[in-house]
Amino acid sequence: MTVPDRLLLVAAGLAGCLGVALSAAAAHVTGGGNLLTAAQFLLFHAPALLALSALGAGGLLHPRLARLSGVVLLLGLVLFCGDLSRRTLSGLPLVPMAAPTGGVLLMIGWLLAGASGLLHRRS
């Protein structure tokens, strides 16, 4: 397993951990709907990052495309979930247009994930 694959595994664990933490925070913060949404996105994408890393490293997906998909998904999560969380906790956006940009990156990441299966050639 390559270093980029291992980093995706670490990112998956971090996404899962943050998803659980934000779920708990959402239960204790008034108006925590955005935190709950961010938590759900993190928890839904953590297994996807694990799968992309493992399947890419195992040769079942196009390895570089699977890694690229994971990186794009990760960037999308940072922007989307980071913006929702920061807006809820501090009232300030992460950066202008962070949530919509993150959402588009998440969609692109999923398309790349599908393409990594279609474009894979078995040796």
Rank of each mutant, 00 (worst) to 15 (best):
A98S: 10
L22W: 14
R64Y: 09
A11C: 04
R122T: 11
R64F: 05
L73R: 02
A51I: 08
H28E: 12
G59P: 03
T2F: 03
L75K: 02
R87C: 03
A26L: 04
L119F: 15
T37M: 07
A25E: 02
F41R: 08
S85Q: 06
L49Q: 06
R6A: 14
A11V: 00
L7H: 04
A48Y: 00
A57H: 02
R86W: 09
A27F: 02
G33Y: 08
S85M: 10
D83V: 10
C17D: 00
M1P: 06
A24Y: 10
V3D: 12
A25Q: 08
P63W: 02
G59I: 04
P4S: 09
F44W: 13
S85T: 15
G56T: 01
A39H: 01
G82E: 10
L68H: 01
L49P: 01
A21M: 05
L106T: 06
G103K: 06
A15E: 06
L49D: 04
L89V: 09
V104Y: 03
L43C: 05
L14K: 00
A54W: 07
G102I: 11
L112H: 06
G117Y: 02
A38L: 07
G58T: 04
W110F: 12
L43S: 14
D5W: 00
R122Y: 10
L65A: 08
G102R: 07
L111W: 11
V104R: 07
D83H: 12
V29D: 03
L22Q: 02
